[in-house]
Write a protein that binds this DNA or RNA. Structure first.
Length: 552
RNA sequence: GGGCCUGUAGCUCAGCCAGGUAGAGCAGUCGGCUCUUAACCGACUGGUCAUGGGUUCGAAUCCCACCAGGCCCGCCA
């Protein structure tokens, strides 16, 4: 494959990430989703390159420098989706999840336990920093675990690799030697492609300082091919606008024994080559790094770079990039409190192009959309065209990892569940919701799956929806509410309470609708709510009186 | 300096990645469910798909240009 030119020269800025389909293919590829399209394009390209298709590996990267959020996870889940799509096309495939745990800690994220003073570990490889949660062998181990745990919960298959392990076992020996031997050429190329001048001076390798243990403060200045040694000085660096002073140590690190790592500008290429990766997606913030890595892979390592898809970053609800170091991020673990795994996988599989806003508020939408997809798949919901039907069925099949259940589950709109669960009496919310659903004839008996959803809906409604703020009442309103509270003591049925509300309202010169709004404001913090008679009755007379008597 | 995303009904958005008669929810209007909020049911109203070109039998969708808002890169990994 030496001189063969890859069909898409991503480092020239052309086709990377685009989904052009050859115009002659009108037939549906695979199951008709973007993943099938990508898998198809990967295979077309691989055939053009003449590479073996006995195993087509895809890779995703796992950041280990902070609490992983949904955006980090989506790269892994989508890579798994591509693996499934490749298998649909009849080739064997494997998903490598690669943890970047040799990376240095750049900033202490907010919201971590203070059992470890992390500020003194700034610049250290995260696999050599103690775990502030004290449950894993290192900081990086903990963060990596959170991602692997989320994948396990989602049922995503992967083969885990860690940077630390790979360097220790000297898995990149051939690549690192080839890169360092031609570092001058690479430095010039980096400057040409990105304007970054740094690697005209320094080698693209970061030794871990033998003296102070930090990795980003060192500058590699020489390479001896006979000894595999890199000479370096610990001279400090700019990290996120702040100066990190070096310790001044000068020494030599072996590139073959885990005493340092390559810069990201060349490390991806080394990984692709060493692990034989044929596909890897990337976020747009890495576009420049990927262009250089493609060139390094092709020209320095003689390994035609993997096919790429570029995804837009996931955004928070205000449209900003999700940041690990700021609060309010949606972790996979948070999502699972409010939504099913299918809802999260749907979010990730639905589209690859375009930005996605990710926030807790969106969860009901994905819950309901999954149910709808399930109905479409099982022929219980109509779709306008045959083409759309094929694609939607395909999407459903991928969300269920190509093992769709024989029959749809019990469907109740999630917002209805949330509404009911949110207003339900605190000590009997599940019974209350189930009783209401039966009354609405939404269900006859709840399945375990539905009970789980009710719990998620309650979490969603009580946490994400917020609690009612105290209401300020006029003297007249207070009198009316107190009057009602007084009459509740004698209540022996839901209907009685319902009727009393009307009577009390009128007795105090209010329109019924006005009085109802007032009561909803006091009880629920909203203008609307469930039928009040049964609600107050279910709540229990004493509790109801207490709730109504609460002073604003 | 380079690149990306977003712009569709009053509001929030879907549809765009593989072109085939513009959609949903909410809001509004009218009606039904015998006082009633919720829920539900029926109907109605509402969009030159930011703008201008191009390709096509056919464009919200593909291409080019342009306007507006936002983001990423040009420290670093």
């Amino acid at each position: 494959m030496g001189g063969s030119r890859p069909p898409d020269n991503a480092y020239e800025g052309s086709a990377a990430g685009r989904l052009d389909v050859p115009s002659e293919t009108k037939a549906v590829i695979g199951r008709g989703t973007w993943m099938d399209k990508v898998a198809h394009d990967v295979l077309v390209r691989e055939r053009g390159l003449g590479r073996s298709l006995s195993m087509v590996r895809v890779e995703s990267g796992l950041g280990a420098s902070g609490i992983p959020h949904v955006g980090n996870l989506s790269d892994c889940v989508r890579a798994f989706g591509i693996k499934l799509a490749l298998e649909v096309q009849g080739v064997r495939s494997e998903h490598i999840a690669f943890t970047d745990d040799m990376d240095g800690l750049r900033k202490v994220p907010a919201g971590l336990p203070d059992s470890v003073d992390l500020t003194k570990y700034i610049g250290h490889p995260v696999s050599r920093i103690p775990d502030p949660f004290s449950c894993h062998d290192s900081y990086g181990g903990h963060m990596g675990f959170l991602l692997l745990d989320a994948m396990d919960k989602l049922g995503v298959e992967y083969v885990h690799e860690s940077a630390t392990e790979n360097y220790r076992r000297n898995r990149f020996a051939r690549q690192v030697r080839a890169i360092l031997a031609r570092s001058e050429e690479i430095g010039a190329k980096i400057r040409e492609l990105t304007g970054q001048e740094k690697y005209e001076e320094a080698l693209p390798f970061f030794p871990i300082c033998a003296e102070c243990g930090r990795i980003y403060t060192t500058k590699a200045v020489s390479y001896d091919a006979r000894t595999d040694g890199v000479g370096y000085r610990c001279e400090g660096a700019e990290l996120r606008g702040r100066r990190l002073e070096g310790c001044g140590y000068e020494g030599e690190a072996k590139v073959t024994s885990g005493e340092g790592k390559m810069s990201w500008k060349v490390e991806f290429a080394a990984r692709w080559s060493a692990l034989d990766i044929r596909y890897e997606a990337y976020g747009k913030e890495l576009a420049d790094s990927v262009r250089i890595n493609d060139w390094v892979s092709d020209e320095i390592l003689g390994f035609p770079h993997p096919y790429h898809v570029k995804w837009e970053l996931l955004l928070d609800r205000s449209g900003k990039k999700i940041s690990k170091s700021e609060g309010g991020l949606v972790t996979p673990q948070t999502w699972f409190r409010y939504g099913t795994k299918e809802s999260l996988v749907l979010l990730m599989f639905k589209r690859i192009v375009g930005a996605r806003k990710v926030s807790i508020e969106e969860i009901p939408k994905y819950m309901d959309e999954f149910d709808w997809l399930e109905d479409v798949y099982h022929g219980k919901a109509r779709v306008d065209s045959e083409g759309k039907l094929v694609k939607l069925k395909g999407l459903y099949e991928y969300v269920t990892y190509l093992k769709p259940p024989a029959a749809p589950s019990q469907h109740v709109p999630f917002r209805l569940l949330a509404e009911l669960a949110g207003v339900a009496p605190k000590d009997a919310w599940q019974d209350y919701v189930v009783a209401r659903l039966k009354a609405y004839r939404a269900i006859s008996e709840p399945t375990p799956g539905l009970l789980l959803r009710i719990e998620m809906a309650r979490n969603w409604a009580t946490t994400a929806g917020g609690r009612p703020a105290p209401v300020k009442l006029t003297a007249e309103q207070r009198a009316a509410v107190d009057d009602l509270a007084g009459r509740l003591a004698a209540a022996d049925s839901a209907d009685y309470i319902q009727n009393q509300i009307f009577e009390v309202g009128r007795a105090h010169g209010m329109q019924p609708s006005e009085f109802f709004r007032l009561l909803y404001a006091i009880l629920l913090g909203s203008e609307k709510g469930p039928r009040l008679g049964p609600y107050l009755y279910d709540m229990g007379v004493e509790t109801a009186v207490k709730a109504l008597s609460r002073k604003g």
